[in-house]
Amino acid sequence: MNEIQPNQLAEKLKEGEKLHIVDVREDEEVAQGMIPGAIQIRLGEIPDRLDEFDQNQHYYMICRSGARSGRATEYLEANGIKATNMTGGMLAWEDEVVLP
């Protein structure tokens, strides 16, 4: 499974890279703040929303601690979608957050 450290993802954002960031947390978790530009697709919704993922794009998966997003990353990869898990999740994120 591909992984990225939170500070590496933050650097990509600061450099202006166009990233596809998917937050798989639940509503009450994202209410505390999300990475700017991220979209929320709850982990349990991913199988039903698989058609929303473009196989020509790369996705960075986020959750609270990195466990759920790791499962999401593995699921996407098994379905031919390029994905990377952010290790440590939002607990390790030290950069800007926005409220949904």
Rank of each mutant, 00 (worst) to 15 (best):
Q57R: 14
M34T: 09
E28V: 08
E94D: 09
V30R: 04
G89T: 12
M61F: 12
F53W: 04
F53V: 02
V98P: 04
L50Y: 07
A10K: 11
E26A: 01
T73C: 15
E77R: 14
R64Q: 13
P36I: 01
D95E: 14
A72Y: 11
Q40V: 15
S65N: 11
V24C: 04
D48L: 09
E94H: 08
G70K: 09
T87K: 15
D51G: 07
S65W: 04
E28D: 14
R68Y: 04
I39P: 01
L50A: 08
E77K: 13
V98E: 14
N7L: 08
M1F: 03
G33M: 01
R64T: 03
P36K: 02
G33A: 03
Y59S: 07
D23A: 01
R64M: 04
F53G: 02
S65P: 03
E17M: 13
Q5A: 10
E74T: 12
V24W: 10
Q32Y: 09
V22A: 06
K82H: 10
L99Q: 13
R42D: 11
E26S: 00
V97M: 10
Q55S: 15
D48R: 11
A92K: 13
E96D: 05
I35V: 12
A38L: 06
L91F: 15
Q8V: 04
Q32W: 07
E96M: 01
E74R: 14
R68S: 02
S69N: 10
G44P: 14
T73I: 12
M90Q: 07
T84F: 07
N56I: 02
M90F: 06
M61D: 10
